[in-house]
Write a protein that binds this DNA or RNA. Structure first.
Lengths: 117, 117
DNA sequence: TGTCGTTGCTACGGCAGTCGTAGTACGATT
DNA sequence: AATCGTACTACGACTGCCGTAGCAACGACA
């Protein structure tokens, strides 16, 4: 079973979180469930990774926290800076993808039948 | 100017090096030039990153070193284990790409004109 | 002959993000 | 009363990237 290496995802956890927060404020547990659901369980973000991302991004001004009104949760909303950052990461992703793909042999990927080498 | 984040590339430097070594033995400086050339200068691997990758991959049994016959260089060749590892990384990449893309808004990428939001 | 630029490499240490482990606390369920 | 799910926080280890520095051989150029 192939798993996603955390080295690759490193630096894109923030992007995933921001993607979800673009749809409206949310909190840790729900975001983690959404990531799991959106990836069909292929990627499950670790709790500590998630919460340390919150701290980092709040410090960087990408998100803002506020307490839930009817519950104990800490909610987060995306800021203008966070939106800009998200946008940059999207552009960066396209570039990165293009670059990495030049070093990937398509014959090894699942879509192929393996007859070409 | 958008640059490739080293966080994303982290863990794929090895893959890039192995891709080049699949074509035959090579050494540090030449590999770095090939990476630069293959990416049209979009990605330039740092010297220390490259040489520490050699050390790590040799320790892991993915590559083997041998001295050049007519020069002072240290050459590397890919091993069977290295080939397997490279293959795994290719498969992993496809999965990762698919996962990350679900969190990327296409409207922000360069191919688009920006009219859709 | 001296110096400069390129090649080819090693050593050291800092940094940042991920993640394992652990612990707390509350509410609902059994 | 105990267990499970929810909702966090704290701490510290680990890994890979990279800045800085240094060294040595070689060719070109003046």
């Amino acid at each position: 079973m192939i798993e996603i290496s955390s080295d690759v995802i490193r630096g894109y956890n923030d992007t995933m979180i921001l993607f979800i927060l673009r749809q409206g404020p949310s909190y840790g547990y729900e975001i983690s469930k959404q990531i799991k659901q959106m990836t069909d369980g292929k990627y499950i973000i670790k709790e500590t990774t998630l919460y340390s991302a919150f701290t980092r991004m709040e410090k960087n001004g990408f998100i803002e926290s506020f307490p839930g009104e009817a519950d104990r949760r800490t909610y987060y909303r995306i800021t203008e800076n966070g939106l800009s950052y998200y946008k940059e990461k999207c552009e960066e992703w396209e570039l990165t993808k293009e670059v990495v793909e030049r070093f990937i042999s398509k014959s090894f990927t699942e879509e192929q039948n393996g007859y070409n080498n």
